[in-house]
């Protein structure tokens, strides 16, 4: 099985203090690691879900794949090239092959441009002018299930779902191979959410696209992805097939996330919360296993030693000293 993208030991750092501040504070290392030792891969034509709380670094991973942020270490192999070492010329053409759907659909569209010119913008940016513009715009808008009449509309005239569809049309305009979708359903109603996901799925089958979907919406990612990577404090703590993770979470954090999803059934009300507290600060990472501060099962070993990544079944990795044995935990997820 060929991977379209494989990331190895990716590290992304952000500077926290300027040179002067760092000198005054005698801070030798004024950086935080937003992403640390992340390894994951996306199979061609498949979908990988990236799940974690806000601030866990999932968007940063997505942005480093198209080099909107520069990695500090590790490799990002797209087909046979390392994205981290690409020249700026090559990067410009790379962004035809990897496109991004941004988080806020309305904010990512310029308010002064019509939908028609927004959809044709990718062609302009990449200097592709040998196309019949009107026909192309019509093709694209129909592909995402909107009427031609929308080509003359401005972004403020669109509903959230329609703006999303325009975002999909823009992302797919240049026939990319990989699409990175950052929270594709945030802020949408349940009925509209289904429409967008069905559209994305249909286009994936038609065009053989690979997806990286960044989200914290677990019920949605369950139906949309083949594989899942759970991110905590910039590290992958569990990775495997979506089905296995949902039926048998091995990491206590994964279990906590899954059981935090409210079930639309008053008989399934939760008496006790599995996951208390909040994400610790990246500038003061906990010792040992970084999840031990919130883990209900933590013992002394967890505070001192960092867990190593272990393969508990083929292609299923988890970083925990005491992962749940397979097929013992039963989560109440519908």
């Amino acid at each position: 099985m060929a991977n379209i993208l494989s990331i190895n030991n990716l590290r992304v750092r952000f500077r926290t203090d300027g040179a002067v501040r760092a000198f005054i504070d005698r801070n030798q290392d004024p950086y935080i690691d937003a992403v640390l030792d992340v390894s994951l891969s996306i199979e061609r034509g498949k979908t990988l879900g990236l799940v974690g709380e806000s601030g866990s670094g999932k968007t940063t991973i997505g942005r480093s794949i198209i080099r909107l942020v520069d990695p500090a270490g590790g490799t990002i192999m797209f087909e046979d090239e390392d994205i981290g070492r690409m020249s700026s010329n090559r990067l410009a053409t790379l962004r035809k092959d990897i496109s991004m759907m941004f988080q806020d659909p309305v904010a990512s569209l310029s308010p002064r441009k019509t939908v028609g010119s927004l959809i044709l913008e990718p062609f302009k940016i990449h200097g592709i002018d040998q196309i019949n513009q009107n026909q192309k715009a019509r093709e694209l808008i129909e592909m995402v299930g909107l009427n031609e009449a929308f080509l003359g509309a401005y972004p403020h005239q669109l509903s959230g779902g329609q703006a999303r569809r325009v975002g999909v049309a823009r992302a797919l305009a240049l026939n990319p191979k990989l699409v990175i979708a950052d929270e594709p359903t945030a802020g949408l109603d349940v009925s509209v959410q289904g429409e967008i996901l069905n559209l994305m799925r249909r286009l994936q089958v038609d065009r053989g696209l690979s997806y990286l979907i960044i989200t914290h919406n677990l019920p949605v990612i369950r139906h949309l992805s083949n594989h899942l990577a759970i991110i905590y404090l910039g590290r992958v703590i569990e990775i495997g097939s979506t089905k296995d993770i949902f039926t048998n979470p091995a990491h206590p954090y994964t279990l906590g996330l899954l059981s935090a999803v409210p079930q639309p059934d008053p008989n399934k009300r939760r008496e006790k919360l599995k996951l208390e507290g909040e994400l610790p600060s990246l500038s003061r990472r906990p010792t040992g296993c970084e999840f031990h501060t919130r883990c209900p099962f933590a013992v002394e070993k967890c505070q001192q030693e960092s867990p190593i990544r272990q393969e508990i079944e083929p292609r299923r990795f988890v970083s925990c000293h005491f992962p749940f044995p397979l097929s013992q935990v039963k989560v109440q997820t519908a």
């Binding site: 959410q193 069905n198 369950r222």
Partner: peptide, 21 residues
Amino acid sequence: QRLLECDPARIEKSTDELPTI
């Protein structure tokens, strides 16, 4: 009824096609 059917958290089996209204 439709609203409840559309909620992905309620759909037990993994599905390719989500219900919509």
